[in-house]
């Protein structure tokens, strides 16, 4: 690389770091779709309360909690995230129990409590991709859901309909047999950004 090019790229990098965090977050949203563990505070609050101790990941029996390097910006380094298509949350609520700093709230493992207080995101069905909506009875997402008939209902040909009670655990997205998946979790922080 020529020296001039190198200096130019440095200048570009320097300038782009000056762009406001909101703009950068908005820009990164379509590519980086992640969930915070269940019981997480809102995104900005979570980042300021999480002390990056990693205990939520150490206690997760499903090994679904991973930790950011620099992908989501410097403010998110070493904070926990879940990619539901890789490994989804089984709502055991152990991470909230072990979290020392209150970034993940303690929530008891009862359906009512979970529906009321867990808000990782909401599932959304892409009817163009969903087999049931294409006339091939499937229903896998419905069967994977830990809150069957509460968070997700099925209609004709097992067509899934997500309700407001969905907590966004991602087990439906994990289990979807279509590639790419026809049901996806829209993360809570994205929903907040959109509204």
């Amino acid at each position: 690389m020529q020296r001039r090019q190198f200096i130019q790229s440095l200048a570009v990098a320097g300038l782009s770091s000056l762009v406001s965090t909101e703009t950068r977050a908005a820009r990164s949203q379509p590519t980086l779709r992640f969930l915070r563990p269940p019981g997480a505070l809102t995104e900005s609050e979570f980042e300021s309360r999480c002390i990056r101790c990693g205990q939520c990941g150490e206690v997760c029996p499903n090994r679904c909690i991973n930790f950011f390097a620099t992908e989501n910006g410097l403010g998110s380094i070493d904070t926990p995230y879940i990619i539901p298509r890789e490994q989804a949350c089984i709502l055991c609520m152990k991470c909230g129990e072990v979290c020392p700093s209150g970034a993940l709230q303690k929530i008891t493992r009862e359906a009512g409590e979970i529906i009321h207080r867990v808000n990782m995101g909401k599932a959304r069905v892409d009817e163009q991709l969903c087999l049931s909506f294409q006339g091939k009875t499937c229903g896998v997402c419905y069967r994977a859901c830990p809150l069957q008939d509460i968070a997700i209902r099925t209609g004709m040909l097992e067509q899934p309909h997500v309700t407001e009670a969905c907590v966004g655990c991602g087990l439906c997205e994990r289990s979807c047999i279509q590639i790419p998946q026809a049901i996806r979790i829209i993360p809570q922080q994205t929903r907040e950004g959109l509204s």
Binding site: E45, R49, Q55
Partner: peptide, 27 residues
């Protein structure tokens, strides 16, 4: 669980004072 930064030692939750200072400031 955890580390010296914050962890559980045989059920007793212990944290580094610096983590408390840092979190109180950030939050």
């Amino acid at each position: 669980k955890g580390t010296t930064w914050s962890g559980k030692l045989f059920g007793l939750a212990l944290s580094d004072p610096l983590s408390v200072v840092g979190q109180s400031a950030a939050g």
